[in-house]
Computed example of a mutant assay.
Amino acid sequence: MNDWRIREATQHDLPALERIRAAAFAPIFASFRELLGDSLYDIVQAREDEEQSTLLTSLLAPASPWQIHVAEGAERIVGFVALQLNRESRVGEIGLNAVDPDHAGQGIGTLMYEFALSRMKAAGMRAGTVATGGDASHAPARRAYEKAGFSKTIPSVWMCREL
């Protein structure tokens, strides 16, 4: 395993984060299109998928309540994780995150989630949460979250129909 390290993200990192986000989520968006069909996907999901890039940019904004950290090795960013600490509820949340598909399966996700959870614990959070999809394209993410100790789930189903 490489010597990966975690550091706070900067605006300078945005092109690398966007590249990783696009590559990591391409199969997920393709899965959504396959599950919904072209027509329904275009109506209910395409805009949200396209706006994920804007979301990533907003997470790095100075006024954002989110912290973004990157995993890097040999001067190359290979993943990122957003986390938020709610000091009122004392619940931390892992938000948008991704690992470069070229580096998947090398423990980077586990490293990032353990880092996020340790930040939550150090900040006095009582629980940590993360949300992910229940479809097959999210199975690797679910396995990574389970490996990091997330074990309690609330199943949900999002249903769509064309009118």
Rank of each mutant, 00 (worst) to 15 (best):
D38Q: 14
D38V: 10
D38L: 12
D38G: 15
S39V: 08
L40Y: 06
Y41H: 10
Y41C: 03
V44M: 05
Q45E: 13
Q45V: 10
A46R: 15
R47Q: 11
R47Y: 05
R47F: 04
E48A: 13
E48W: 10
D49R: 00
D49M: 00
E51R: 15
E51F: 10
E51T: 12
Q52I: 05
S53L: 07
S53F: 08
T54R: 13
L55G: 09
L55S: 09
L55Y: 03
L55D: 10
L56E: 03
S58A: 15
L59A: 09
L59S: 06
L60N: 03
A61Q: 07
P62L: 00
P62F: 03
P62E: 01
A63R: 05
P65H: 09
W66R: 06
Q67N: 15
V70E: 02
V70P: 00
A71Q: 05
A71M: 12
E72H: 09
R76I: 13
R76L: 13
I77V: 15
V78W: 01
A82S: 15
A82D: 02
L83R: 08
L83T: 14
L83Q: 14
Q84P: 02
Q84A: 07
L85Y: 02
N86L: 09
R87M: 12
R87L: 15
S89A: 14
S89Y: 08
R90S: 13
R90A: 07
V91S: 02
V91M: 11
G92C: 02
G92E: 02
G92A: 12
E93P: 05
I94F: 02
I94C: 08
I94G: 01
N97R: 06
N97D: 08
A98Y: 05
A98V: 07
V99K: 01
D100W: 05
D100G: 08
P101E: 08
H103S: 11
H103F: 13
H103C: 12
A104E: 07
G105T: 08
G105S: 10
G105A: 13
Q106I: 02
G107C: 09
G107K: 03
T110G: 14
L111N: 00
Y113I: 15
E114H: 09
E114Q: 13
F115M: 09
F115N: 08
A116D: 12
A116N: 10
A116P: 06
A116I: 05
A116E: 10
L117A: 10
L117S: 09
R119G: 07
M120F: 09
M120Y: 03
K121L: 11
K121M: 09
A123H: 04
A123S: 14
G124T: 01
G124V: 00
G124A: 01
M125S: 04
M125T: 07
M125L: 11
R126S: 03
R126Y: 06
A127V: 03
V130R: 00
A131G: 03
A131S: 10
A131C: 09
A131T: 15
A131L: 14
T132N: 00
T132G: 00
G133V: 00
G134T: 05
G134C: 12
A136V: 13
S137T: 07
H138I: 05
H138F: 15
A139W: 07
P140Y: 00
R142V: 00
R143S: 10
R143L: 09
